[in-house]
Design a protein around this nucleic acid. Structure first.
Lengths: 225, 225
DNA sequence: TTTTGCGTAAACATATTGTTAAGATGGACG
DNA sequence: CGTCCATCTTAACAATATGTTTACGCAAAA
């Protein structure tokens, strides 16, 4: 954080937006680069490995959602922060964006103050070490004791089940793509069938007794609070 | 170094303060969690049972003094350490804080050095002199006499068995990974087979006669209370 | 309608641990 | 110095929990 050599890629088809954003981020000490469409964004992401990517929702050659989906499906970019640039009114984009694994939204027209505070907050959040005790709603996940507490009951999960629930609980409400889950829990070398995740999800639902994991068809799973 | 794993709750409405404090405390080996106002502090205190609570005097939804007063009124939190975060000049807070049962004060802006030394000092002060005798549930482990008491019976364990049980009893409920157990009891140079741990666990279970050690498959063992 | 994606249960495969007994080691002691 | 004895470790096998696949059903989307 003191060495603000964080790299930020900004993708938007309007040159004015690119300029305003990079001007303000540069002033704050961030290193920026720009792309004018989705394909260029993907290409430059591979090249420069930015720490944060700001994607305009509406862009030529792959819109923001598509770029996000492509990136999130690859293990190497799952730690990368992704922020969407949306029109102020656009509510549906927020919902869809979360499903695809966005970390935040910035609405246009952009206020420099909000921009900076959001970006700073995101980086702050990321570098925090993983908590040993997670809480999401009335579920407490204790990695130290290796138990899950639900409504006072103490529930024992098998290892994979525990890991899966723990992953979802790191970002409650956010959807995790099936690819993301696979690479986080099984790693990239191991290859397991599609039904495997379902079965584990089912066991978790069964053992917890409450309906806390929601299926987002065609996308993945998320923990609801 | 010394494996503290003491839990510290930090309550402040300024994110920057939370970040600075938890960063420094984490680096020192403490486990931290945060709250952004008084109500959240109380809630998380009940949930996570921290060993020390750092309260900003000025917070939304119950200020530090109020939180302190609530906690001190309950017997279960009288052993909990409470520290106030105050502005440097604020003399009256010190006096009032002492009346409410504060254990120390840390003035903002916070110096990491002072922070760490104060926190360490507080824990040193409350540390029990007799950790030669551990108790977990109805099991008493006496490192001086080298015996274990279970339900009045005096049981003699072999050296390795004793060390293993003692290790588990230092943190009842916590899961110890097999690797952890190996490095703690056998050290890093010695290499023993996987079954060795199992056999010792078995002997302990057999000798104690009660089922106090739980297997967490794929992870390790823990002592239940 | 056809296709796609997910839920479910049972069968199957695997990994991890429990158990037992048999060497290996080293100290105590005559 | 040799014997006894407790402890530690290992190997072999049994038992079980866990993980994965298969097969099939259902519902919603194309």
């Amino acid at each position: 954080m003191d060495d603000n050599s964080k790299k930020i890629l900004i993708a938007d088809d309007e040159p004015d937006i690119l300029e305003i954003l990079s001007y303000n981020l540069n002033k704050e000490g961030y290193e920026t680069m720009t792309a004018k469409d989705g394909d260029e964004a993907l290409h430059k992401t591979k090249l420069f490995r930015p720490d944060l990517i700001m994607l305009d929702v509406m862009m030529p050659h792959k819109n923001g959602m598509e770029v996000c989906k492509v990136l999130r499906a690859q293990p190497s970019y799952q730690g990368t922060l992704i922020v969407f640039l949306t029109a102020l009114s656009d509510e549906t984009s927020h919902i869809k964006g979360l499903e695809y694994g966005a970390d935040d939204f910035i609405s246009k027209p952009v206020s420099p103050k909000i921009l900076i505070s959001k970006v700073n907050a995101l980086f702050r959040r990321v570098q925090k070490p993983d908590d040993k005790v997670l809480q999401a709603g009335n579920i407490i996940i204790d990695s130290v004791k290796f138990v899950v507490m639900v409504e006072g009951r103490e529930i024992i999960l098998a290892k994979k089940e525990f890991e899966l629930l723990h992953l979802l609980a790191t970002k409650p409400g956010r959807v995790f793509l099936r690819n993301e889950i696979l690479s986080q829990i099984w790693g990239t070398e191991v290859i397991v069938g599609d039904r495997t995740i379902d079965v584990h999800i089912r066991k978790i639902r069964q053992k917890l007794g409450i309906d806390c994991i929601t299926t987002v068809k065609g996308v993945g799973y998320k923990l609801v609070v």
